[in-house]
Amino acid sequence: MKIDKINMIYGLIATMGVALLGKYWFLFAGFLLLNVIDYATGYCKAKFYNKNESSAIGAKGIFKKVWYWTVIGIAFFVSMSFTYMGEVIGVDLSFVQFFGWFTLATYLINEIRSILENLVEMNVKVPTFLIVGLSVTQKLLDAKTEVKESEG
């Protein structure tokens, strides 16, 4: 009986996520979870290791995360808007669909790296390959989204 309730609750959450954010809702939920973990590790680092806890710095961190969500929303809005406008005017602008996804991927990497940096500063042993792998992933994303300036 308890498993049925858990399955029903998960099904409800998944259904609401898909309805609101599409079939990749779990990426957004994961980003939200990473926001919370990053805030918690930053708080622990400041309070217990650096002994410099500040409500102003904590509030700044929360606002920063809200602005991340704002930028992600703008990126997805731009993606959808230009894709639909391209259909209306007969110009293929489907490549802009990636704006939102590249923005979300960049912020996901940023949050994970921030969590790992907090853990390292708290003397938690973090595998080097994970830190290097995220750095390489960020460089690949940056290279893929780099805008080339035209010569001339």
Rank of each mutant, 00 (worst) to 15 (best):
I3A: 15
D4I: 02
K5V: 12
K5L: 15
I6Q: 07
M8E: 15
I9A: 12
I9V: 10
Y10F: 13
Y10T: 01
T15R: 14
A19I: 03
A19F: 10
A19D: 08
G22S: 04
K23G: 13
Y24Q: 07
Y24L: 10
W25A: 12
F26W: 12
L27C: 08
L27N: 02
A29E: 06
F31A: 09
L32N: 07
L33S: 10
L33R: 00
Y39A: 10
A40W: 10
T41Y: 01
G42K: 01
C44A: 14
K45A: 09
K45C: 06
Y49L: 07
K51A: 08
S54M: 04
S54A: 11
S54H: 03
S55H: 05
A56P: 00
I57F: 12
G58R: 03
G58K: 09
G58Y: 08
K60R: 07
G61S: 05
G61C: 04
I62W: 12
I62T: 10
K64E: 14
K64F: 06
K65N: 05
V66L: 15
Y68T: 02
W69T: 03
T70E: 12
G73W: 05
G73K: 05
G73D: 03
V78H: 01
V78M: 07
S79P: 00
S81T: 07
F82W: 05
F82T: 05
T83W: 09
Y84E: 13
M85A: 15
V88N: 05
G90A: 02
V91K: 09
D92E: 11
L93F: 15
L93H: 00
S94D: 04
S94I: 03
F95N: 05
G100Y: 06
W101F: 13
W101E: 09
W101P: 00
F102A: 13
T106D: 08
Y107A: 04
L108R: 01
I112K: 02
I112T: 03
S114T: 11
L116S: 10
E117V: 01
M122N: 02
M122H: 04
F129L: 10
V132S: 12
L134Q: 09
S135I: 02
V136S: 07
Q138A: 15
Q138F: 11
K139P: 02
L141M: 11
L141V: 04
D142T: 10
D142V: 12
D142P: 00
D142Y: 10
E146N: 14
V147L: 14
V147C: 06
E149V: 10
E151V: 11
